[in-house]
Structures are given as C-alpha cells and as structure tokens.
Design a protein around this nucleic acid. Sequence first.
DNA 1: ACCTGAACACCGTTCAAGT
DNA 2: ACCTGAACACCGTTCAAGT
Lengths: 177, 177
Amino acid sequence: MPSPNRTTNAEVVAAAREVLESAGPAGLTMQAVATRVGVRAPSLYKRFHDRDALLTAVVAATVDDLGGRLEEAAPDLRGLATTYRAFAHEQPEAFRLVFTPYAEEGALRRSSAPVLRAAADLVGEEDALAAARLFTAWATGFLQMELAGAFRLGGSVDEAFDYGLERLTAGLTATRA
Amino acid sequence: MPSPNRTTNAEVVAAAREVLESAGPAGLTMQAVATRVGVRAPSLYKRFHDRDALLTAVVAATVDDLGGRLEEAAPDLRGLATTYRAFAHEQPEAFRLVFTPYAEEGALRRSSAPVLRAAADLVGEEDALAAARLFTAWATGFLQMELAGAFRLGGSVDEAFDYGLERLTAGLTATRA
DNA sequence: ACCTGAACACCGTTCAAGT
DNA sequence: ACCTGAACACCGTTCAAGT
C-alpha cells in the first residue's frame, strides 16, 4: 500500500476554516487549503467533490461548533444571545456563511435545539417554534448588521443589543392581543 | 472625438443587477456584464476600478431602490415589513449582499429613514434608533433565513413572519420593566 | 489507493495600439 | 477619449502517470 493517507477530511475542514477566517472567502482557495495540510490542490478532490462541497463541510462544522457552544450556554435567551454573539465575533467569516444556501438543514436543526428549549420555557410548547424563529432571526440579523458595519453611526452597539433582547423578551411574554 | 461613450455607469450597474439575479454572484463576471451592455470586459475598468467596486455600486443601487420602496410603503412597521419582504423575494441575490461589507453606510442610512419614523411613532424619539435596529435586525435575519432555506422544515413561514411582527410590536409597546 | 505534475478552461486585470 | 485584442497571473478542475 503505497501513498498512505497524508491527511483527513477533518483536517482539511479545520484548515479551510482557518484560511477562511484569516483570508476571507476569496482567499479560501483549494491551493491555500492544500498547502496548509501538506498536499497539492488536486488531492483535495479525492475527499471533496469540488470547492462548493468543501465550503458546505466548513459551514456544517461551523454550525456544529456553534450548536455545541449553545448547549453549554446558560439556557435562557440572554445566555444564548451572549454566546451566539461571542461566536459571531470569534468566527465572523464563517458566521456570515451560516445562513446561506451552503448550510444544510440537518445541521441547522441540530444546533437550534437549545434555542427551542429556551423558547418553550418562556412561551410554552405550542409557540416555541415561532418564538425560536423570532429570537434567532433577530440575533442573526443583528450580528450580520454589526459585522457588516451597519452600526457605524450613532449609539452603542452593546446597548442596542441589550435593548433588543429586553424588548423581544417582553414581547414574547406579553399577554396575547 | 472618435469612440463616443457606448454605455453609461448606470447602464452597467443595471446590467450587473440583472446578471446577479439570473446567474448568482459567481455568474456576475465582468465579461457577462460587458456583453450585456455591448462592450468588451476591459472597457468596464474605465468606469469601475475593479469587480469589487462594481459590486459596491450594485449594492448601493439596490439599497437606494429598497429605500424608495419603503418610502412608498404604508408607514407603520407592518407595512414596512411587508414591503421589505416583497423586495427580498423579488431580488434575493442582491438582498443577500445588502448587509455585507459591500454596503456603504451612507446608502444604508438614507434607506433607513422610513423605519426610523415608524419606530419613533411607536416608541417615541428617544428609543427610535434602538427600536428601528430591533425591527430591521429581525426582518433582515428572518429573510436571510428564509432565503437560505432554513425554514424548510415545520410550520408556515408566513405565520412565523406574522407571529414575529406581532410579538415584536407588542414588545416595543409594552411598558418598561 | 492516494498523490502529483501537467494541462485546460475561465476569470480578473493591465496595457499598448487602434479609432 | 473611449475601446479593444493580446497578454499575464491566478484559480478550479481533470487525468494520466507515478509510488
């Protein structure tokens, strides 16, 4: 058996995540990833069908990572929001890709369990899904705007985050009109 | 004066927006845009420094377009949310780029005026900015998730949108804790 | 069975030469 | 003054040939 495996899928994905964060999506080239794991670019095609498939794997690993952090977070909306935001700040480039067509629904569903539980605690099982979507949409949008620099003008971003979280929670617990 | 202008910046941007929607970001090549306006790719560099500059112009035009739609919308949060969502469905590829580093803060600020007014009507001038950010973050995140297919499983997307809008409005108008 | 050099297609970009 | 063909660098991808 000549030429034993010189790398693994997991190692390639880890290298791709590092390249993504340090060089952005345009810098995430097959050659850059290959060099980092010590092979040549064509070898990556034995493991991933094409660059898109590698990107999909990168996003899946990112979502799993995020899901793990959320499992460890304080199990209420404030704890989840804080953890979610810290993750976005730590891995901004990968975070930007989480809600794109690169994300598979399976990974997204797995990572949303902690949010669903916190939502159910707050509003009951019946509205849990809609409440979780409200929370996730707000947090995701807020972080995308923050990362895009849409808050460059006016006011404290931290205060806007706190205000949003507080009003959102108030809305979820307010009696139904 | 030989070789009079064979196109204009506005025409190039309009062509780029069409290519973007029909072929996605990867299909938005300088050649595809050039062909559509009847010149060769190198000619575009007389008008835009590089592809990134063209993309920035595309996003600016998109944000201005969105701002105009919001100005014409019913001036409350429900009217704005409906218009915002219709725009995202009509130009999904461009919408995805609005909250990326391609967006300039100037355009974003201009297009946010209607949201700021609706927010001020609801919560008063003091909290208008934070309330507008809460609303915009939720709507943006919701639409990004919807476009990414993150709602493929479970429940009606329309109902989730209505629920979010209703709870959000309730939270903004609830008395402060 | 995995890895690689060589090759090809395609794209962004530059620039000298046209009109 | 704007436009273009030709050229270059770079990247994704394929594949025959190595071990």
